[in-house]
Write a protein that binds this DNA or RNA. Structure first.
Lengths: 241, 241
DNA sequence: TTGACAAATTGGTCGGACCACCATACCAAT
DNA sequence: ATTGGTATGGTGGTCCGACCAATTTGTCAA
């Protein structure tokens, strides 16, 4: 009994949201154009109006649509108004080349944030409690290294999250969270990134060691290690799928 | 006739979402605890169940709650699962000191992303079309420098957005978008940041000039200028409110 | 004590109705 | 011909009541 991959049936509004999101990203509706009215969409999708309303409001939050009472839903330029949570859908619509580029760029963003975090941490004393939390997260990752990849990925993100938490900055954490969640949902990414989970654990241990005496000179080494791992991940991703 | 600040009445589900969000962030519900059922919340808030459902689903997307059919809504650790769009609400619940710290950190995140973007742009040739778009955005900002602050802030963000767009990376843009939107909604921030809009325009022009021949050596100067402006903004914010 | 079963609770969906806002076309006054 | 008001239909926003589906809880028998 290694694992039990439960499968959940997505809710109706989730299905509707996915369908509509795909349609928008596919370009079925011209940007700036108006979507069909809710009632018509409901009939087309064979679902109640309340359900499509839920889906549409979701897309509005995501930045794909805007809405005004009495007027209707208009397609937005999601690159100018959307959030990172759109990336999985974008990856789904891109070819192999485009998908790997998207992932590569997202990892670059993550490294950039990591650099800011490390820079901020440099020279400061990290509280013992937070250092202990990081150690705990690393150990947890080591513990599930042989288990399902999904758990490894989550544990890996938990370590990074703990490091970011050590900055004591809510803005940092809230900015990183969506990126981590996106990385978790990208299919095949975990398989490409955690081919040898224990190496990742070792890398984290290096970072934890640095945190004990965070001198700025140590940052480039850590960052280059991250870059190496990310590069290998992208290469593996290209080769695989 | 300088401007006409229209006022819109927020929708019912927005109001409900705000009320519930405040309650959660204020700690009225213990983390991990279950919220009252939808029907009860509807009665308490004096609104239909459909309406509170909309508000609750919104909070789920924001990472404040999780939900399971038959079980209920449970409060999440938003620092571990929330997105940057929570920051305005957080600022509203913080004291003066905490609020300015939140803003300062968010600006630090933005500078970090700017650094990554500039690093990526360095050494590459920026396409003429994108350079022109940046110039256009700067001119648009200059044009509305004397107008309402809200427009200045939007134009300023549009410039940064154009610069990021020059990277050709969707991940970069989608990561930055929420941060920009948050900065736009923070009350009083525009007043603190754009006390002399023309200076900001001049700074952008410097950046645009660098983009014509993006040598890595020019990056620190631009970044330090940004840091200076952000620092001044935070100081002004502390002093003011 | 344990396991299965039944009832109550709770979120998810449905159908229809009405209200508020908006877009358009039309008409009257200038 | 232009302007301003008005009427009509369309569209999103909210409400009501009902039922379905998943979960939790309580109960009882083995």
């Amino acid at each position: 009994m290694t694992l039990q991959p439960i499968e959940v049936r997505p809710s109706a509004v989730e299905a509707c949201a996915g369908s509509l999101r795909d349609a928008v990203l596919r370009g079925d509706f011209v940007e700036g154009a108006r979507l069909p009215p809710e009632r018509q969409l409901a009939q087309t999708l064979g679902v109640n109006r309340v359900t499509v309303r839920g889906a549409l409001s979701r897309l509005v939050v995501e930045g794909l649509l805007s809405v005004r009472q009495g007027s209707g839903y208009v397609v937005q330029d999601f690159l100018a108004s959307g959030g990172p949570e759109l990336l999985p859908a974008l990856v789904g619509h891109a070819d192999r080349q485009g998908a790997s580029t998207l992932v590569k760029d997202l990892l670059e963003v993550r490294r950039g944030l990591a650099q800011v975090v490390l820079t901020r941490l440099a020279g400061r004393r990290v509280k013992k409690a937070e250092l202990a939390a990081i150690e705990r997260a690393i150990s947890a990752m080591e513990a599930c290294a042989a288990g399902p990849l999904r758990d490894v990925a989550e544990a890996d993100f938990a370590v990074l999250s703990a490091v970011v938490a050590a900055t004591g900055s809510a803005a940092f954490r809230l900015t990183l969270n969506p990126i981590g969640q996106v990385l978790l949902t990208l299919p095949g990414l975990a398989a490409a990134m955690y081919r040898a989970p224990l190496e990742n654990v070792a890398a984290w241990r290096v970072l934890a060691g640095w945190l004990a005496a965070p001198v700025p000179e140590g940052i480039p080494l850590i960052l280059s290690a991250l870059a190496e791992r990310d590069e290998a991940t992208v290469q593996q991703l290209k080769r695989k799928s």
